[in-house]
Simulated scan of single mutants.
Amino acid sequence: MRSYLLAAQGETEESIEQTLNVFEKWKDTTFKWLTDSATWELLFINTVKILLIVVLTRIAIKVVHRMINHAMSAKEQSRVTVNPRRLVTVGKLLKNVTSLAMNFIMIMFILSVFHINLAPLLAGAGVIGLAIGFGAQSLVKDVMTGFFIIFEDQFAVGDVIKVGQFQGTVEMIGLRSTRIHSWTGEVFIIPNGNITDVTNFSLNNSIAVVDISIAYEENIEKATEVMKNTLADMPERDDNVVNVPQVLGVQQLGASEIIIRIITECRPSTQASVARHINKELKKALDEHGIEIPYPRVVTLHRQEQGGINYGA
């Protein structure tokens, strides 16, 4: 038993000694590496190379972005009719693509500074990319749909659109998704592959429809004439109104009112504000001319003892 303990103690001391020797060798190697001027020189050179690569990449990205802006401006000022919404969208898409490509090239150059063989890396990236392409079919669908949205000019940045139950202003069209900002503040991020049915409210002028009610006791011709005179100069007072509003006439005979319909052509997506403006102006005009806007009434009948009927309101 004693001999066994002595042997175990000897093995422990030997392993400790080997560990100390390895540590001493590592410490000597590290000290030599840190005190070697060639190490610091190589580290300084590599740092300068990396900084130069990053700076040159940023400068190249800014130059390409300015070239894209210049090309979009020249295209917009040319004689050929071009949709400015499409130019903005295409410009943003080109900037995103160039930024991604140049950042990828920058990473490749930085890896080459550390003498990493890029050929196997690129080959492996190609194989992985092919596998991802087969596996991520939804991603490919999103990207392809995004290109077709821009190519066919279905909608662009700044348009007011409705996609399914989501409605708002388009803030961004990316390679994979579209961002919509609603008028109540919500931001919807929709994958392009899920965009099937789109309603675009910004391509053509809108029509504002306003129904005004007057009492049965009022003169229809007089009310119509007041409305026409009030709205005659509406395009001068409201920049959103394109043409003079039209008073179509009696739209409906209600239970206690006569409904007169007015329509007007206005700029895209401004029909709500134009309708509110028309309602405000017509309310003032009807009050000034003493034309009554109806309200609910109750008529009561009082039976007398002789059998006659007394009407009261």
Rank of each mutant, 00 (worst) to 15 (best):
M1L: 04
L6W: 15
A8V: 12
T19V: 14
L20Q: 13
E24P: 03
K25C: 09
W26Q: 06
K27Y: 14
K27E: 10
K27L: 08
D28K: 09
D36N: 14
D36G: 09
T39D: 07
W40G: 10
L43R: 13
I45H: 14
N46R: 11
N46Q: 08
L51Y: 14
L52Q: 10
V54R: 14
A60E: 03
K62E: 08
H70S: 15
M72D: 03
S73G: 09
E76M: 03
R79V: 06
P84I: 02
L87H: 00
T89S: 07
V90A: 02
V90F: 00
L93T: 01
L94C: 11
L94T: 05
T98P: 02
N103W: 01
I105L: 09
M106L: 13
V113Q: 04
H115E: 09
H115W: 14
I116R: 09
N117P: 05
A119I: 12
L122H: 15
G124S: 15
I128S: 11
I132Q: 09
S138H: 13
S138F: 07
V140H: 11
F147A: 13
F148W: 15
F148Y: 09
F148A: 10
I149L: 07
I149S: 03
I150D: 01
F151E: 08
F151Q: 14
E152S: 07
G158H: 11
I161H: 00
I161T: 01
G168W: 03
T169Q: 10
M172I: 09
I173Y: 02
R176L: 06
E186R: 08
V187D: 06
I190H: 01
N194E: 01
N200P: 01
F201E: 05
S206H: 07
V209F: 07
A215L: 02
Y216F: 06
E217Y: 08
E221C: 12
T224D: 07
E225G: 12
V226P: 04
K228N: 14
A232Y: 01
M234L: 11
P235L: 03
P235V: 05
D238K: 05
V241E: 00
V241Q: 02
V244L: 09
Q252K: 06
L253C: 06
L253Y: 11
G254Y: 02
G254H: 04
I260Y: 02
P268N: 08
S269V: 06
R276F: 14
R276V: 14
I278N: 01
H289F: 06
E292W: 00
I293S: 01
Y295S: 05
P296H: 10
T300R: 09
T300P: 09
T300K: 15
E305C: 04
Y311F: 15
